[in-house]
Computed example of a mutant assay.
Amino acid sequence: MSTISTSGRASRSYSAVPGQSGGPPLWRVAKALVLLVCIALVALPFLAVLSTSLADAAQINDTGGFVLWPDHPTLDSYRALLGGGLVSRAMMVSVGVTVVGTLVSLGASISLAYGLSRPGSYGQKPILLLLVFSLLFVPGIIPSYLLVKQLGLINSYWSLILPTAVNAFNVIVLRSFFTSLPRELIDAARIDGASEWRILTGIVMPLSKAAIAVIGLFYAVSYWNAFFNALIYINQSAKWPLQLVLQTYVVNNAAIGQGQTSDPAAALPPTVALQAAILILSIVPIIVIYPFLQRHLTKGVMIGAVKG
């Protein structure tokens, strides 16, 4: 009997340790409350912005600003923005720059990382040192602008892609992953007569889907969220990406005029609703894409964390 009671006390004391699945009810309730508070801090602002973008003019005027739940949801704000006005053009520009820029950046980064990962590659050490040097010393705004102007890229979409096409950190991460791949596979393919291009596309890239997905997500988010290059290099508002429109009309609180919506003759929804709709349009694409890459992202963040 004493043995049973001792083991029971040991079991109860072990389960009472914070963090264990069999902790006391008070500890589980505290953890649940903390998680609910964290979820509320993230979800409530998003819900307020989404509700405001869907609210009608009367409810927004009654509340004097943001609406937590729309009584009569309407898509007037989205119709005004996406019917051929400034925001619809900006979304097309952002989507095009993000897709083309991500493909260009992935192609350049994968090629450079693969070349640097192969032993005995020509100029391997100087190029690697140059990449590390670019991480430590970033060129200023004026030299970058003068270079882009000298290349004739001012007011061109390529000015939003080429200056940031290759990120040194992403290249170093890819190089580390390529270096960790079994060298025997590459040697066997080379003995069978496979070219370097065939080895890269048929062996290295299929084995590196997780790393490439993570780097691709980094590039895509960077291109989608970028507005500073457009602010410097793009002079025509018709070529603005969505983030520059967001920065102009939401952050700087500039007035959205009649000529910047789908129907210049129609009455505009409240400015707060239009600003909230622009915010939602800038967030939704990343939210939609992320679930498809989550599985690869979970694997990619573990690159180099576990050996053997």
Rank of each mutant, 00 (worst) to 15 (best):
M1I: 13
M1V: 09
T6P: 02
G8W: 11
S13T: 11
G19Q: 06
G22I: 10
P24A: 13
P24F: 00
L35G: 08
V49Y: 01
L50H: 01
A58V: 14
D62H: 11
D62F: 09
W69V: 07
P70E: 01
D76W: 00
D76K: 08
Y78N: 02
R79F: 10
A80D: 03
A80K: 01
G83H: 07
G84T: 06
G85E: 02
G85T: 01
R89W: 02
V95T: 08
T98Q: 06
T98I: 05
V99M: 01
V99C: 04
G101K: 02
L103H: 02
V104C: 04
S105M: 03
G107L: 13
I110W: 05
S111C: 12
A113Y: 06
Y114I: 04
S117F: 07
S117C: 09
P119A: 09
G120K: 05
S121V: 03
Y122L: 14
Q124V: 04
F133L: 15
G140P: 14
I142A: 14
S144Q: 15
L146T: 07
V148W: 00
Q150Y: 11
L153P: 11
I154H: 02
N155R: 05
W158C: 00
L162Y: 06
L174W: 13
L174H: 12
S176D: 12
F178T: 09
T179G: 00
S180E: 05
S180W: 04
L181F: 08
R183A: 15
R190K: 11
I191Q: 10
S195L: 06
E196N: 10
T201P: 00
V204E: 08
M205E: 03
A210Q: 08
A211Y: 06
V214H: 09
V214D: 05
I215E: 07
V221C: 11
S222N: 15
N225M: 13
A226G: 11
A230I: 02
L231Q: 15
I232R: 02
Q236D: 15
W240L: 01
V245L: 07
Q247N: 15
A254G: 14
G259M: 00
A265D: 15
A267R: 15
L279S: 14
L281D: 02
V284S: 06
I289L: 14
Y290I: 11
P291M: 05
P291S: 06
L293A: 15
Q294N: 09
L297T: 04
K299V: 02
G300Y: 06
A305D: 03
